[in-house]
Design a protein around this nucleic acid. Structure first.
Length: 427
RNA sequence: GUGGCCGUAGCUCAACAGGUAGAGCACCGGAUUGUGACUCCGGAGGUAGCGGGUUCAAGACCCGUCGGCCACCCCA
């Protein structure tokens, strides 16, 4: 193998998978449109400061996962590790915040992490962001929108919705203090990672996978008790709305998010079918971020779904992955036939643009061309040989004759090609 | 960044107390001159990830390195 290979964690998406991707992208876009969301297309690269200020200086993403480099002017740039920051930046810069905005975007994100199942260094997210609405009906809409996407994808039964409210920044500050005080007295019982988090990011201890750490937390302070009245009321209202809409959910009081900008509602859609990377979609409210990035104070909520993880789920559920077969394969033996076939096929593409017509290229014997025709999966072969050229005709041959009826083929005048072909292709 | 497992033809995998590599699929050609599929025959394709060591001899053993997978971590 050549020593030039793809960069670790940046995978090729092969033809055998793209049908699944297209189904996913098409379905997601259709649902988003049906909720009145508009697509926005954003740069892959932004100034480094944007991510540091939005995601948080002490998060793992900013500290060790960003692809950051200096451009030729010496300015620090970063390949986007997530989409919200850029979307907020654009909304502020382009003056989109005078009225409620419902936006979505899709594309690659970049994080320098060790690859594993459902995790790569270049991965794809579709993000949804709603600006300008502070009330929990907006939260409910976003969650319903997700549920609708899962339903349309046939994945609703694979998903569990986990919900929490992390309240205001002040509430979290107070809670963090209480939590640190509590855990400090029990440091010895915590796993190594959680001991480290005690200093760096104590709230993340809450979703530790270590069972002993989890049982230590059972006697600790609950974030719920520190929530301000508004956050509690809004969360209760959100739960009511979800119940009314028939959305199943689980309140997980230990659900926190890794990015600093979240407040109040946070949620995750998780699945047990994907191994360790079970979070398929996650998001929450970020009412402070727009102001923090220099815009006028604007409430907002958003979420992002991991497209690779959705593709994995779709594949495990047996979504068709084969690229579509050709409809027609064009066999032409000899130089004269080749010229006529090429022209006739071009005309056919004008008449029947939806047909997938594969022209044989590269020469080869008649027999080998027929083999290619068969392997292409085409239902019909169009054949031009010496006889057809001489008679200004073409042979239309059905390659997928049903049991018994021996390979139906008919030779007709060129001008009858379109109707004969359509008849042969008719079910 | 840490750990476990793995690295043989395009793909999926074999073999053998360590004695210089094989199958299936795929690919190419042929089975009387322009007709695919099934069948039969033939062919091409690997300096065994890379480097070093042990040995008369290593794909097999040892070390290193790179890469892959999965998990930790992190998160979508």
């Amino acid at each position: 193998m050549s020593e030039i290979t793809a960069i670790r964690g940046m995978n090729d998406i092969l033809p055998s998978e793209t049908a699944c991707w297209q189904f996913l992208e098409r379905t997601v876009a259709a649902v988003l449109s049906s909720y009145g969301y508009d697509e926005i297309r954003l740069p892959l690269v932004e100034k480094t400061a944007l991510f540091k200020r939005s995601i948080g200086e002490v998060t793992d993403i900013v500290e060790k996962e960003m692809y950051t480099f200096d451009d030729r002017n010496g300015d620090s740039m970063t390949l986007r590790p997530e989409g919200t920051a850029g979307c907020v930046r654009a909304a502020i810069q382009q003056g989109l915040l005078n009225t409620p905005q419902r936006l979505w975007y899709t594309g690659p994100m970049f994080r320098y992490e060790r690859p594993q199942k459902g995790r790569q260094r270049q991965f794809h997210q579709t993000g949804v962001e709603a600006f300008g609405v502070a009330t929990p009906d907006m939260d409910a809409e976003l969650i319903l929108l997700c549920a609708q996407i899962w339903r349309q994808l046939g994945l609703l039964d694979s998903m569990e919705l986990q919900l929490n409210s992390i309240g205001s920044a002040e509430a979290r500050r107070a809670y963090r203090e209480a939590l640190v005080d509590f855990l400090q007295a029990r440091v010895e019982q915590l796993d190594e990672d959680s001991q480290r988090r005690l200093h760096s990011n104590p709230l993340r201890i809450l979703d530790s996978k270590n069972s002993q750490t989890q049982s230590v937390l059972d006697d600790g302070p609950s974030l719920e008790d520190f929530l301000d009245e508004e956050a509690s009321a809004d969360f209760a209202r959100l739960c009511e709305l979800l119940q009314a809409a028939g959305i199943q959910y689980v309140v997980n009081r230990r659900l926190v998010r890794g990015l600093d900008y979240y407040n109040k509602t946070v949620f995750e859609w998780v699945t047990r079918e994907l191994g360790a990377q079970g979070t398929v979609c996650a998001g929450g409210r970020y009412d402070g971020l727009v102001g923090q990035l220099g815009g006028k104070a604007t409430p907002a909520i958003g979420c992002a779904m991991g497209m690779e993880r959705l593709v994995l789920l779709l594949l495990e559920h047996g979504q068709a992955t084969a690229p579509p077969a050709a409809d027609v394969y064009v066999v032409a033996a000899g130089d004269a036939a080749q010229g006529i076939a090429l022209a006739a096929t071009q005309a056919l593409r004008c008449q029947q643009p939806q047909l997938r017509i594969v022209q044989h290229t590269g020469g080869g014997s008649f027999k080998s061309q027929m083999k290619k025709a068969d392997k292409s999966g085409a239902r019909v072969a169009l054949i031009w040989g010496e006889d057809e050229v001489a008679a200004e005709s073409v042979t239309v041959k059905s390659l997928r004759a049903q049991n018994g009826e021996r390979a139906a083929q008919v030779t007709v005048a060129l001008r009858e090609l379109e109707t004969t072909l359509c008849a042969a292709l008719a079910p």
